[in-house]
Amino acid sequence: MKNGEKEKFAGLKKVEVVDDHLGVTFPVFVMYPTRTPEKEEFIGPYSLNVAKDAKPQDDVFPLVVISHGTGGTPLVYRTLARHLVQNGFIVAMPEHPYNNIHDNQLENSVTLLESRPGNITQTIDWFKGDDLFKNNVNFDDISIIGHSMGGYTAIAATGGIPTTLPWETDNQVPEVIDLKVEERIKKVILLAPALGWFRNEGALEKLNLPILMMTGERDEITPYFHAEILLKGVGNTEKIESRTIDDAGHFSFLSPFPKEMKKSSFPPSQDPAGFDRELFHQELESDVLNFLLS
Rank of each mutant, 00 (worst) to 15 (best):
V91K: 06
N100Y: 07
N100I: 06
N100F: 10
I101T: 12
H102G: 12
D103R: 08
Q105C: 13
L106F: 14
N108I: 08
T111F: 00
L112R: 07
L113R: 08
R116K: 12
G118M: 13
T123R: 07
G129C: 10
G129I: 05
D130E: 10
L132A: 11
F133T: 03
F133R: 09
K134F: 02
K134N: 03
N135H: 12
V137H: 03
F139E: 06
D140F: 08
D140R: 11
D140S: 09
I142L: 09
I145K: 03
G151E: 10
G151M: 09
Y152K: 12
A154W: 11
A154G: 14
A154N: 07
I155T: 04
A156W: 09
A157I: 10
T158C: 12
G159R: 06
P162V: 11
P162Q: 09
T163A: 01
T164F: 00
E168A: 00
E168Y: 00
D170E: 15
V173D: 14
E175R: 13
V176A: 10
V176G: 06
V176M: 15
V176W: 12
D178K: 10
K180A: 14
E183P: 11
V188S: 07
V188R: 07
I189C: 00
I189A: 02
I189T: 08
L190G: 04
L190T: 04
P193C: 02
P193D: 05
A194G: 15
G196I: 04
G196A: 05
R199I: 15
